[in-house]
Write a protein that binds this DNA or RNA. Structure first.
Lengths: 198, 198
DNA sequence: AGCAAATACTAACAACTGTTAGCATGATTT
DNA sequence: AAATCATGCTAACAGTTGTTAGTATTTGCT
C-alpha cells in the first residue's frame, strides 16, 4: 500500500498532474487510461480519485497552468519600458523556446491535447489563445509604425514564430547534435532576421 | 441500404480513407470510433470491413501517402540542376506550405497521429522522416559550402522550417485575415531571410 | 432474367473505459 | 491509546471499443 510520495512543495495532486502530463504527451489524452496513470504513479486507479475529481480535470490543470505562464510573461513584456518592440519579440521568442525545452510535456499537451477540454473550458482556452496572438501582433505592428521592424504581415509572422519552436519536440528525441543554448541562438537568429530592417 | 458513393477515379476504400483523415484530424485517432467513421461515410460500422482490414490500416494509408508525396518532391528537387541550393530550399518550403493549405487533414494526421502506427510501420515511418530531414540538411550544407547560404546550423534551420508551416493550421480556422497567396509569400520571406547572405 | 460477386445489414463478442461504493489501512492529532 | 482524517484497496457498474460471423440485398455481367 505504497503512498504517493510528494515533494515538499508539491501536493499529491501535483504529482499526479505531472505524471498525467508525461503520459498525455506520450500516448495522447484519449489513449491514456486511468489505469496507465495509476501505474505511472504507483497506485490503483480508483485511488487517484482521492486527489482529483476526473480525468478532464487533469487536462484542465495542465492547459491552464501553461497558458497562464505565457500570459504572465507577456504581461511583463508589455509593461517593460526598457525594451523596444523588436527586443520584446526576441525576448518572447526566447521564453517560448525555453518553455519548449524545459517543460516540454506540459507544453506539448497544451498544444496537442487541448481540443479534448470540456466546455466551458475549451471555449475559454481558445479565447485566451486568440487574445494572446492579438497582443503579439500589436507589439509587432507598433514596431512597424515606429520604424523598428520591417514592414511585414504581423498575423503571418506571429503564426510562424509560435509554430517554429515546435521543432524543439524533435530535438528532444535526438539530443546529441546540438546544445540547448546553441539551439536557442540559432532559432532566434533565424526567426528575427525576417523582422530586422536591413 | 445506401452504398458508399465513390468518385470515378477513387475506390470505396479511398472514400473511407479521406473520411478517416477528416475525423482523425478533428477528434484524434484514438478518440475516433469506427462507428463515428461509419456515420461520416453513411454506412454501418461493420460494413467498413468489406473495404478495409482494420482501423490501423487507415492510419497507415494516410501517413505513408503523405510521406511519399514529400519524398517524391524532394527527389525531384535533388535531381533538378537548374536551381541552386537556396532556390531549392525555397521551393521545398513552398511545397510544404501548399501541402498544409491544400491537404491539411492528411498532413495534420501524419504529423500528430503517426505515433499510433503499429510496428513495424511506426519504425519505418520514423526512419523515413529522419532520412528526409538529413537530406534537407545536406542541401543547406552544400549551399553554405558553395557560399550561397549564410553560415547557419543546418539542423536547427530544418527543424525551424518544417515546424513553422504548422501555423497554417490556425490560419485555416480563421481564414478571412489573409489569402493563401499572401500567407505563402509572407512565410517564405520570413523563413528565407535567415538563410540569405546580407 | 438469372447468376455471381460485391457490399450492405443485424447481432454479438470480449476487452477496455472512467468512475463509484464500501471498506481497510496509514498517518496525525488529541 | 484512542480517535480522526487522509489515503489506499477490491469489486463492480454501465457504456464504449474494434472486430467477427452469418445473412440479406444490391450491382454488374451473361
Amino acid at each position: 500500500m505504497a503512498r504517493i510520495r510528494s515533494k515538499k512543495n508539491g501536493s499529491r495532486k501535483d504529482v499526479i498532474t505531472l505524471a498525467a502530463a508525461k503520459l498525455f504527451r506520450e500516448k495522447g489524452f484519449s489513449a491514456t487510461g486511468m489505469r496507465d496513470l495509476a501505474v505511472e504513479v504507483g497506485v490503483e486507479a480508483a485511488s487517484l480519485y482521492n486527489h482529483i475529481s476526473s480525468k478532464s480535470e487533469l487536462l484542465q490543470e495542465i492547459c491552464f497552468r501553461v497558458a497562464n505562464t505565457f500570459t504572465t510573461h507577456l504581461n511583463d513584456m508589455e509593461l517593460n519600458e526598457k525594451l523596444d518592440s523588436l527586443e520584446k519579440i526576441e525576448e518572447i521568442i526566447r521564453f517560448h523556446i525555453r518553455m519548449w525545452i524545459e517543460r516540454i510535456d506540459e507544453v506539448l499537451v497544451t498544444n496537442n491535447e487541448s481540443k479534448y477540454l470540456n466546455e466551458p473550458y475549451l471555449t475559454t482556452f481558445l479565447n485566451e489563445r486568440r487574445i494572446y496572438v492579438k497582443r503579439l501582433e500589436a507589439i509587432i505592428e507598433l514596431g512597424i509604425k515606429k520604424g523598428i521592424i520591417r514592414k511585414v504581415q504581423a498575423y503571418a509572422v506571429v503564426l510562424t514564430l509560435m509554430s517554429a519552436v515546435r521543432g524543439i519536440e524533435f530535438w528532444h528525441r535526438t539530443k546529441k547534435n546540438i546544445s540547448a543554448e546553441e539551439l536557442e541562438e540559432s532559432m532566434v537568429m533565424n526567426l528575427i532576421s525576417g523582422l530586422q530592417k536591413t
